[in-house]
Amino acid sequence: MIGAVIDWSAFLFYLFAAVACGFALAVVLSNHIVHMAFYLTLALGATAGLFLLTGSQFVGAMQFMIYVGGTLVLLVFGVMLTAQHRFVSIRTRAGEWITAAVLGGALLMLLGYVAWAVPDWHAAPPAHVPPEQVESTSRLGLALTGVRMDGGSGYALPFVIVSVHLLVVLIGAGYLARARVRVSDAAARKEMP
């Protein structure tokens, strides 16, 4: 019976997983930097879909907002600033590819083995989950302010540290890419006797 086969959450998982993994590989295999950025967008978007599937809606939306909408736009912006013809596709030597493929394959096998090594990790999931356990947004928000209703430790200090870190990064990035003063070429040419 086909109805038994089509479990929508499983189907969606496989769909998102295929998109995420496929485009992650495309990022690796593509040589064209703008295409890579596009594939990365799709891969990260599909990852956000996976987050939504696990019930972590806030993290999924966050992934869309900050990762895909912010970080990647920034990245593409940088790509466009530097995408001169000669830098659009810098080829990698074949030797590097082979080494990377062997090591990557080994790493993948190791991680794949680990993923399926613990029986508890692929035991059948709980049949019924009470909604308040899944609904996590307000608990996330409270945890970030240091309030935990489930007795775990709060995250106020990490949150503050990250905030300060972001501020430092903001200033630092602004400093690195700061505006420089330069006389325009035309004016400089005119200056020359």
Partner: peptide, 14 residues
């Protein structure tokens, strides 16, 4: 020193 108010100056980021 070139000052920012100088009309010949072009400010640029990148």
């Amino acid at each position: 020193a070139t000052r920012l108010e100088d009309p010949r100056v072009v400010e640029f980021d990148v």
